[in-house]
Amino acid sequence: MRLHPLTSLAAAGSTAVITTAAACFPLSVAVGAGAVGLSFVAGVAHRMLPAAAAVLVPLGLSLLVLHGLFFPEGGTVLAQWGPARVTSEGLQFAVERVAQLSAAVLALMLFSFSVSVPDLVAALSSRGVTGRFGFVLASTLTLVPAISVRVQRIRQAQESRGLLIRRGWAHRVIAFRLQAVPLVLSLVDEAGTRAQALEARGFSSRGPRTSYREVPDPPFQRGVRLVLLLAAVAAIAARLGFPTAGA
């Protein structure tokens, strides 16, 4: 069965919230592993895993170094070099936190890498206020790949006019300005034209809208979304009601 984009969003969001609320190491590991497994099923693993690693590896290392070496609250000292003390409490804190964050990050990335953006935008547009959010999201995702091509073109044109990019901060800042100005200028100018074009095409109309792209939304999935949202809210409520349970 094909998932409606909002259903997968609700699933990813609820998973992230529940994992954070549970703060339970085995659950975190299971959710993380499940997200990785599903990414292979969905065929997005080759794009998602490098992106996830780029986010999680520095974060994980940073936390391990920070809490593994410096955790003044820790009592059980495993090793000590000058001011640095490796404590089992610190290590445990770091490992648990990394597992919990990885689970939430992987669940959310599974959603963003597997969702069809046009479907998501169509689903958002048929729901009032979010139409403008859908525009911002889709337009940004269209512009990101285009911008690197454009920066490259600008740089080539400037090098052809004798621009040498030398080392040193001052030169870098000057080079930044020289390249950023045509980039920002052309983006701002294009945005001006695009605004006029969008308005000419009724984008600011306040009346009802229709959608050319059909995104099927069976009633069953609406039910699932409601259940997922309630589960997330319940998890938050339970955690706030019993702040130290399971910790």
Binding site: P118, A138, T142, A197, T210, Y212
Partner: peptide, 27 residues
């Protein structure tokens, strides 16, 4: 406009949807 690319919405995935954009907005 002269710069045809700038008149596109940048939020539609196919030519057909791009054409329909103005109609969608008018319901």
């Amino acid at each position: 406009p002269q710069d045809a690319a700038a008149s596109l919405s940048t939020v539609r995935a196919t030519v057909a949807e791009e054409l329909a954009f103005g109609l969608e907005n008018l319901g």
